[in-house]
Structures are given as structure tokens and as C-alpha cells.
């Protein structure tokens, strides 16, 4: 590659990024309330996809129960806000009312990191298919627990009247208006992208890709593979948890129905469609997976029954025309230009 080439490319992506950023900032001011709701949905999914991309795209760990971490985040705010069946030693109108949401947003980082490590320590020793099955099971267990543990989660009825966030000091109340949630998610996305990009460009990112490429060789080159996989898992879990807190505070209501396997698959689709291991890809994937069907539904409500049909068409078309994803990571791009190599035999030779 010539040097001028890469500079032009950088200028182009820089321009493109600025454009996307400006659009993302002003768009809620230009559209209807219904479209604003969709924007919140897209931003939530983008955050979820961003986190899952670390697990699946970078470290190569197929996690099919990812949505469980979204659920724990959502329930954390539902329960700690005092809206759930467990009575909290504070009432919502107090000091807690202004600060509670923001505190829980941070507490969830710790909670989900803990859950991620707890779940990951035994399971991340497994490889490939086994890990996928175990995480699939974990996702279902969390949903089933939420569905049955009435004294904590309110069972199938869920938790309602979850408080909306307030901004301390100025006393701004998020309420039902989707726009502040959208901007909050945008802020969280920016923080997430910043953190994950920096990790990607460090020895940790290198270790993740090495594990994805060849775990035996990574270990032999001194990569503490279990630790690095746990880190990827924990980062995915915290990202999803934060998204869950915002979701619960926005929708004011959580129930197990929001966290079924299909939701996990949807996020996974966003990551794969966008391009595994690519941060902009995950964001684009989220837009395509939830944005396009939602906008179509908004524009053509009579086509509602075709909703999953469009989804299927998008998937099939992508697999045929752009298997490497919408915005593939540079590494993947290179890989797919060549034939897939034969499987590495089980024995280490």
C-alpha cells in the first residue's frame, strides 16, 4: 500500500465520522416522536452490539446468552430504585431520587463484572461449541429466574413504575421524552467506543485477537488466555448492564419477556452483519438490524407482518454479497480474500 493511499483513506474516514457524528447529534431534533423512540432503540442496540463485539468479534468467544447481562442491568435499577418487591431503606423522593440512577449506573459496572467473572471462570475454559451451549443455557437461566423469583423480580409481571433519571442540581427530569435518553446513550456509546478502541490498540487487544486466531499458540506465546477471555467477557457484561439500566429507566418497566434468546440472537446478528471485530461495523449492524425494520414499520404500518421477512432478506443478502460484514475490520477483510484454511487438527503438532 502506498503512503498517500492510506492518508487519503484516513481523511475520508475522518470526514465520514464527522458527518455521522453531526447527524447523530442533530437528528432527534428533526424527526417525529415515534422516530425518536426508534432512535433510542437503535442507540440501545448499538451499545449492546459494541459490548458483544468485544466478546465475539475480538476474543472469538461465541456468547449466545449475552442478553442476560442486559437483564441484570435492567433489574438492578428496577430493584435498587425501590420500585421492586424488595423494600429499600430509602424513598424515591429523597436524595436518592436525583443521584440513585447515576450511582446505579456505576454500581452495575461492578455487579455485572462480578457476574461476568463468576460465569466466565468455569465456562471460559470450554472451547467453541461448548461455550456457546453453556452461555445459551445461562441466558435462559437468568430469564427463568427472573420469571419465578417473585419476591425479588416480581416474576412474570415484572417491575413497574421504575423511576426515570433526574440530573442532580439542575433537577432536570428525563420523564417520558425519548430525546434525553438518546443523548445519554450517545454519551455512553462515545465512552464505550473510546475505551474499547484503546484496549483494541494495546497488548490486551492483541491478546484477544491472538486467542481468536489460535488459542494454543497464544498461550504458548505467553498470553494468559483465561484471564484475557475473562476480561473480554467482563467488558461485554458491563456494557450490556449499562444499556440495561438505561432501558429500565426509560421504559419504566422491566419484565422477563424482554430478555429471551431471540434478543441475544438479534445482537449477535448486529455484530456479525456489521463485521466481526469492527467497532463501526457493530454500530452499523445495530442500525440495520433494528433501525431499518422499525422505520419500515413506522412508514408502512400495513406491512407489519413482513417485519421478520425483511430481516431475513437482509441477512441472506448480506451473506451472499458481503460475508465479511458491512464495515469489516481490516484483519477480517484480508482473511476473506483468501480461501478459508483447513481446520487445525485437535492434537498439537
Amino acid at each position: 500500500m502506498k503512503r498517500g493511499d492510506s492518508r487519503n483513506r484516513r481523511l475520508l474516514t475522518g470526514g465520514l465520522l464527522t458527518g455521522v457524528a453531526i447527524i447523530a447529534l442533530v437528528i432527534p431534533q428533526l424527526v417525529s416522536l415515534a422516530a425518536q423512540e426508534i432512535l433510542v432503540l437503535i442507540a440501545t442496540f448499538a451499545l449492546l452490539a459494541l459490548g458483544l463485539n468485544v466478546v465475539v468479534g475480538f476474543a472469538g468467544l461465541l456468547d449466545l446468552g449475552y442478553i442476560a447481562f442486559y437483564a441484570t442491568g435492567a433489574y438492578a435499577w428496577g430493584i435498587f430504585s425501590g420500585a421492586g418487591p424488595i423494600k429499600m431503606p430509602y424513598t424515591r423522593s429523597e436524595f436518592w431520587g436525583d443521584w440513585g440512577f447515576w450511582i446505579i449506573l456505576f454500581v452495575v459496572l461492578a455487579i455485572n463484572m462480578g457476574i461476568g467473572v463468576m460465569l466466565g471462570s468455569p465456562t471460559l475454559r470450554l472451547r467453541g461449541d461448548y461455550l456457546a451451549i453453556v452461555t445459551l443455557g445461562f441466558g435462559e437461566i437468568v430469564r427463568i429466574v427472573a420469571n419465578n423469583l417473585e419476591s425479588v423480580t416480581g416474576a412474570a409481571l415484572g417491575i413497574s413504575q421504575i423511576p426515570h433519571p433526574r440530573i442532580p442540581f439542575i433537577g432536570y427530569h428525563f420523564g417520558l421524552n425519548p430525546v434525553p435518553y438518546y443523548y445519554l446513550l450517545l454519551l455512553l456509546l462515545i465512552v464505550g467506543i473510546f475505551v474499547i478502541r484503546r484496549l483494541d490498540h494495546s497488548r490486551i487487544g492483541r491478546a484477544w485477537i491472538a486467542i481468536r486466531e489460535d488459542e494454543v499458540a497464544a498461550e504458548a506465546m505467553g498470553v494468559p488466555t483465561l484471564k484475557m477471555k475473562l476480561l473480554a467477557f467482563a467488558i461485554g457484561a458491563t456494557t450490556a448492564g449499562v444499556a440495561g439500566v438505561v432501558f429500565a429507566s426509560k421504559s419504566n418497566y422491566v419484565s422477563p419477556a424482554s430478555f429471551d434468546v431471540f434478543a441475544s440472537f438479534l445482537v449477535l446478528c448486529a455484530v456479525v452483519l456489521g463485521g466481526m471485530g469492527s467497532i463501526p461495523g457493530s454500530l452499523a449492524g445495530a442500525f440495520v438490524i433494528v433501525g431499518i425494520p422499525s422505520f419500515l414499520q413506522l412508514r408502512f404500518p400495513e406491512l407489519d407482518e413482513y417485519r421478520y421477512w425483511t430481516f431475513g432478506v437482509i441477512l441472506v443478502a448480506m451473506m451472499i454479497f458481503r460475508p465479511q460484514g458491512l464495515i469489516p475490520s481490516k484483519r477480517r477483510e484480508a482473511e476473506l480474500m483468501l480461501e478459508a484454511d483447513p481446520d487445525i487438527p485437535e492434537a498439537v503438532t
Binding site: R206, D214, G222, R332, P345
Partner: peptide, 25 residues
Amino acid sequence: ARTFQQIRLFGEMTSLENVEVGLDA
């Protein structure tokens, strides 16, 4: 440190990145 009889590089990573993984030890 070792090499493998059947090559086990990190195929998608550049040559430099492969060596960097080793150096990161």
C-alpha cells in the same frame, strides 16, 4: 519458547503484530 511443527501463526494479524504478541509476554 517454541515453534510448531504445523505452523500456528495468528493468520489475520500482520507479521509485526504476531511478533508483538510474543513481546507482550
